[in-house]
């Protein structure tokens, strides 16, 4: 790798920040009107589902996360446990 490219290579954090800024900027140009949200408000299109689905998802995460070395992406609440 050349010295020049090393010196001026933007950091990963900067690149992610610029990408996020562009995405948020693009999102500002988009408005889905309330009368257009019939499909999006259906339980099958909601992130995390409705109350019933959210409880099921929490049970599933509880069963799976305890068998893997990672976490994240689905909330922070909950009591800790030994789970060994």
């Amino acid at each position: 790798m050349s010295r020049r490219s090393t010196k001026h290579a933007p950091s990963m954090a900067l690149r992610v920040g610029v990408l996020l800024a562009l995405l948020v900027g693009a999102a500002g140009c988009v408005t889905v009107k309330p009368q257009q949200r019939g499909v999006l408000s259906d339980p099958i299109m909601r992130f995390g589902g409705n109350g019933h689905d959210a409880v099921e998802q929490a049970h599933f995460r509880h069963a799976i996360d305890n068998r893997e070395g990672s976490f994240g992406g689905d909330g922070v609440a909950g009591g800790g446990c030994g789970c060994n």
């Binding site: 988009v30 889905v32 257009q36 999006l40 992130f47 976490f71 994240g72 992406g73 922070v76 800790g80």
Partner: peptide, 27 residues
């Protein structure tokens, strides 16, 4: 054992049929 967890989320409707969600989690 002390646990601190933080999460930030961005949910966006892009069209009447398409939506995305971006989540950052730290513990």
């Amino acid at each position: 054992l002390v646990l601190d967890a933080f999460q930030a989320g961005w949910t966006q409707l892009w069209s009447p049929l398409f939506a995305t969600q971006l989540i950052y989690s730290r513990q």
